[in-house]
């Protein structure tokens, strides 16, 4: 059994052992879906700001909320799984094995990613069936590509947050703040074109807005390839610059915690 498979198997077994939490997590996702569905009745379709994304508000909100919860996993899963190992008392046992800490960190996040992917597929499928979301399935591969590119950019931020966990033992507040900023300025429930100009600049500096913009455009019947390419370029720059830096920072944080003797503290 490969190490990656072993991590996924372990986390699936642990997750399954908390049956109620397993069910409520899925149920929670559908609550958000229903909210977006009912909210869409209030918003007239073909609003000017929604035109680049096909004009239907429900589709806009569906993709926004689904992607937000998916990207939140990228943001919080590394620090989340690390924090859990610290609190459970299992981190030392992991770190005395012949594996690089960064590998353990990446593999530890595999199950949350897998679960979030299943959730995303269920969420969008049910949304399309119940509320007739306008999704161009012909461009699904393009949308998936954009989704993964955004994930790469977000994961780099998530890796940086996990370094904070190693050093300060708590990063919940930081993750919450970053998540809120992305939700507020990233264009989850409204296009960033409705924001005041200075906030639009801020929104354009975030990977979230480019990720959502790219995924939404990719799912329209006639995708604007120029705009999608621009979003992809920005996300790729984020990922290429941030990921190696984030991995280096994480290694540095672990080395510092070893010197301080605080690796297993929480």
């Amino acid at each position: 059994m490969s190490l990656l498979t072993a991590f996924v198997k372990r986390d699936f077994r642990l997750e399954r052992s908390y049956r109620l939490a397993f069910v409520t997590q899925i149920a929670g996702a559908f609550t958000t879906l229903l909210q977006a569905g009912f909210l869409s009745h209030l918003v007239p379709s073909q609003q000017h700001a929604l035109r680049p994304y096909g004009g239907d508000y429900f589709t806009f909100a569906l993709v926004g909320t689904a992607a937000l919860s998916y990207f939140s996993v990228a943001l919080g899963s590394f620090s989340g799984s690390l924090g859990q190992e610290q609190q459970q008392g299992t981190l030392e046992a992991l770190l005395v094995t012949p594996n690089e800490p960064r590998r353990l960190l990446l593999y530890g996040a595999a199950w949350p990613f897998l679960f979030a992917t299943i959730e995303l597929i269920l969420y969008t499928t049910v949304g399309a069936l119940l509320f007739h979301a306008h999704i161009a399935y012909d461009n699904l591969a393009l949308a998936t590509g954009m989704l993964f590119l955004t994930l790469a950019a977000f994961s780099a931020v998530g890796l940086l947050v996990s370094s904070v966990i190693v050093l300060t033992k708590r990063a919940g507040l930081l993750t919450g703040m970053i998540g809120s900023a992305f939700a507020l300025f990233g264009g989850v429930l409204y296009p960033i074109s409705v924001l005041p100009r200075p906030l639009q600049w801020l929104a354009n500096a975030l990977p979230m807005s480019h990720g959502l913009d790219g995924v939404r455009r990719a799912l329209t019947a006639t995708p604007d390839m120029g705009a999608i390419g621009q979003d992809a370029l920005v996300l790729a720059v984020f990922a290429v610059l941030l990921t190696p830096l984030a991995l280096q920072v994480f290694e540095w944080a672990v080395a510092r915690a070893r010197r301080q003797g605080s690796l297993s503290h929480y």
């Binding site: 498979t5 072993a6 198997k9 372990r10 077994r13 046992a93 992991l94 594996n99």
Partner: peptide
């Protein structure tokens, strides 16, 4: 340092992969 919700064998399976 063990995963309490897993069995002894499951703990060892994970450790063997590590």
């Amino acid at each position: 340092s063990l995963y309490w919700r897993l069995t002894a064998r499951q703990n060892l399976e994970f450790a063997a992969a590590l």
